[in-house]
């Protein structure tokens, strides 16, 4: 693997709440290579979105705070930049797509102004030219007749079209990295596939890397190169996508896979839910966060926190029994 574009090292983000400190992201490390698509998978509250927001330093402070760690982007530590420095990165080198296209566009501004804004902001392009570029971008995300639609307001667009507009905004400055935070959650299933295919195609075209945050394993299988599974604010398993599907080495990943239907293979197979509730991040158990819900839990899991074990070529698993799981 060549030098990573983004390298997150030991990132911890906490939120101070009335019930105590919540470690939403706890000692998370991962790399993203140029042009690679990394999927971060996990259920609600597992820290996926906070990880994404931490990278761009968009965590509201207070109550949130990035406690420790390094976020190296092109060799620069984003956490050490001043406000001006991080603003120059946001939207220009790293762009973000949010999960709710319905509320992520400003209802009071025309689509053209919103798509053109990053260009005007970072390239200091005059507005007339920024709008030309915006029309071109709308064409790229397959919004027909982009030029005449620049003057429309977001409420005149459908949900799928709004997410296309968000993608156009993200692509405006040809960022090296796109962070897509559940880009298709709010959309129809048929539109979801179109949006993801479009996103994949456009990132390939511009050779942008992508962090795809999702809870949908089906999405991961089709569009990701590598997967990081998050649970309780930590990464519990990371592996190349194919390998993760073939040989999951963490009970949580296995549980996730057993709980979703597959169209290929055995359609008669019963779906097995993961028992219990996701952990309360304000009071995590001292051992493995998944221990209370794990079927193969041992005494050691409850006391000792498992580190990430090398479980194969570029395959890490935070389970003491990862080797047994391989069998």
């Amino acid at each position: 693997m060549n030098t990573p574009l983004l390298s997150v090292r030991n990132l911890s983000t906490r939120f101070r709440t009335e019930r105590g400190t919540v470690r939403a992201v706890d000692n998370v490390s991962f790399d993203v290579a140029p042009g690679e698509t990394l999927a971060i998978v996990g259920e609600s509250g597992s820290g996926k979105s906070v990880t994404a927001l931490s990278i761009l330093r968009l965590i509201p402070d207070p109550p949130g705070k990035i406690e420790s760690g390094e976020i190296l982007f092109d060799g620069k530590d984003l956490l050490k930049l001043d406000d001006e420095g991080i603003r120059a990165i946001r939207g220009d080198r790293i762009a973000m797509i949010f999960q709710e296209p319905m509320s992520s566009l400003n209802p009071a501004l025309t689509v053209g102004l919103q798509v053109g804004e990053p260009i005007n902001l970072h390239r200091k392009t005059v507005w007339a030219k920024a709008l030309d570029k915006a029309a071109e971008l709308l064409g790229k995300v397959r919004i027909p007749d982009g030029r005449s639609r620049l003057g429309s307001y977001p409420h005149q667009y459908s949900g799928g079209m709004r997410q296309r507009v968000m993608i156009a905004m993200a692509l405006a400055c040809q960022p090296r990295l796109i962070i897509a935070d559940e880009p298709t959650t709010a959309l129809d299933v048929t539109v979801q596939a179109q949006i993801l295919a479009l996103l994949k195609e456009l990132t390939r075209e511009t050779n942008s890397a992508m962090i795809l945050i999702t809870h949908d394993l089906g999405v991961v299988a089709r569009y990701a190169d590598r997967v990081a599974v998050m649970y309780g604010g930590r990464i519990v398993e990371t592996a190349p996508a194919r390998q993760l599907y073939k040989t999951p080495r963490h009970p949580y990943t296995r549980g996730l896979m057993a709980s979703v239907p597959r169209l290929d293979g055995d359609t008669e197979r019963p779906l097995v839910p993961i028992e219990g509730q996701p952990p309360d991040l304000a009071s995590l158990p001292p051992g493995c966060p998944f221990a209370p819900r794990c079927k193969d839990v041992t005494e050691r899991c409850r006391i000792e926190r498992p580190p990430l074990f090398e479980s194969g070529p570029s395959h890490l698993s935070a389970c003491f029994y990862h080797e047994r799981l391989a069998a």
Binding site: L58, R90, F98, S103, A108
Partner: peptide, 28 residues
């Protein structure tokens, strides 16, 4: 608290720009 304010921040807009171009039109 609207998402589009966060989205505007994520495009690298300064606080002044967010206030002037994204918040003000919505409280007109």
């Amino acid at each position: 608290e609207n998402m589009y304010v966060h989205a505007a921040q994520s495009t690298g807009a300064s606080t002044f720009r967010v206030l002037w171009r994204h918040i003000l039109p919505n409280v007109m």
